[in-house]
Design a protein around this nucleic acid. Structure first.
Lengths: 230, 230
DNA sequence: CTTGACACAGAACGAATGTTCGGATAGAAT
DNA sequence: ATTCTATCCGAACATTCGTTCTGTGTCAAG
């Protein structure tokens, strides 16, 4: 195992990445010699073996031109490898959030169980990742379509899409889907007060709901984004 | 020059594309034999020569594993090649809409003049293109941040972002930014009636505004999307 | 001073791989 | 009937290319 990634290692990484980008196929060991100060294919193999061991290179034994730089190496050496923001943006720019169902006041939120896979749902909503707060777990977001006018106090219309993340814990000021008394689901800003919970509508002209501690409420998720297509 | 692209040609195209996708490197001629009903490398060469002639394959002479399917072939045979909408979407998936300013009831909408370039504005909003209606002119969308509570009847909160497109013509049912009597800007669904215009709030519990033809109104843009980050 | 580890080199080898050759078959055109 | 073209095949060959071998030099550690 190499003690550290030397300049020669970095030269090799760079050539592999650059060749794949420019030619659309991997360099041979002899190609790497030509583009670096390495003069023998056994040294190329020596460096590649080490880069492979630390997970920066991928190759297939006894098959020609299979060298590729791994995602791990790209993240660590993106500047060296000439990987632009476009590449980084392409990795994080968009995500598909599964449309798991509908939200209505009369039913609990259909929070998916466990890890959500896109393949489990027929529809999804594509989002630019920059719209999602950094602390949201992008892996487990889900989308619900609002049915009916019962969410108007949340400034959410029939037909709007709410992007949510599963959560039972809430901080003050976060908007939650809360089921009150197993009777009604509503979207409200959540504030914990001394002896009760204040559920504040998004519509500033409407009054909050105060829920005594004796009333069971269930936090069914947090809202991170509302979308209204017109 | 092949008279036409036969099933065998298509098999070869498919294998080249599939191998590149799955393995990250190109197939050899023998790999292609194994994945098709072709039993000799000379026939593979025969088909590749023809595919190269019509511009569907790219390869380098005497260099191993350089086969790739060209963009021309991908566009023509995307279904055969298993090129999903994802590929097509990746080409058009997201767009950046410039944040040109704010919308408040007391000011006209700051509609940008002429073609909008991202470089003219410091901020932008990234959107998945699938959220935008097909008829919207993606080139000229602009974003405005809502200031104040004056758009509540439009179910739009202080801090929300509205995505708009410039437009002076409206169809019934579209949501517009309309300036009434050079006095107030509001977001409403627009309906032209016999002798007046009905501006319908998004909030179904609120009453519409009726504007007589004698009252000057100015359509300052159409709303295509509302975003609320929470 | 000796030893071991690391970096380096050229050469040889064997396998992988693309190209070419000679030939066969079927069908269309003359 | 003959010729031409397209399609097909296996084999051989040449080149490409990855792996291995043997050896050298440098430097740090003991």
């Amino acid at each position: 195992m190499a003690k550290k990634i030397s300049d020669r290692h970095k030269q090799v990484l760079k050539v592999v990445q650059k060749h794949n980008d420019e030619y659309g196929y991997a360099p041979s060991y002899r190609d790497i010699c030509e583009e670096t100060e390495i003069t023998s294919t056994s040294m190329v193999n020596y460096y590649l073996k080490q880069l492979e061991e630390v997970g920066y290179i991928q190759r297939e034994e006894n098959i020609s031109r299979t060298l590729s730089v791994t995602e791990k190496a790209k993240r660590k050496y993106h500047q060296l490898l000439g990987i632009t923001e476009d590449f980084i943006n392409d990795m994080v720019r968009s995500l598909s959030v599964p449309m798991v169902g509908e939200i209505v006041a009369s039913e609990p939120v259909p929070v998916p169980a466990g890890d959500i896979g896109l393949q489990d749902y027929e529809n999804s909503v594509d989002l630019a990742a920059s719209l999602i707060p950094r602390n949201a777990d992008n892996e487990n977001l889900f989308a619900l379509e609002v049915k009916g006018d019962s969410m108007i106090d949340a400034m959410v219309n029939d037909g709007d899409i709410v992007i949510m993340k599963p959560s039972q814990e809430v901080k003050n000021g976060e908007m939650v889907a809360v089921r009150i008394n197993e009777d009604e689901t509503t979207l409200k800003y959540f504030f914990k007060e001394d002896d009760r919970v204040r559920l504040q509508p998004a519509n500033p002209t409407m009054d909050p709901i105060f829920v005594e501690k004796s009333t069971p409420i269930e936090i069914q998720g947090k809202v991170v984004l509302v979308l209204r297509q017109i």
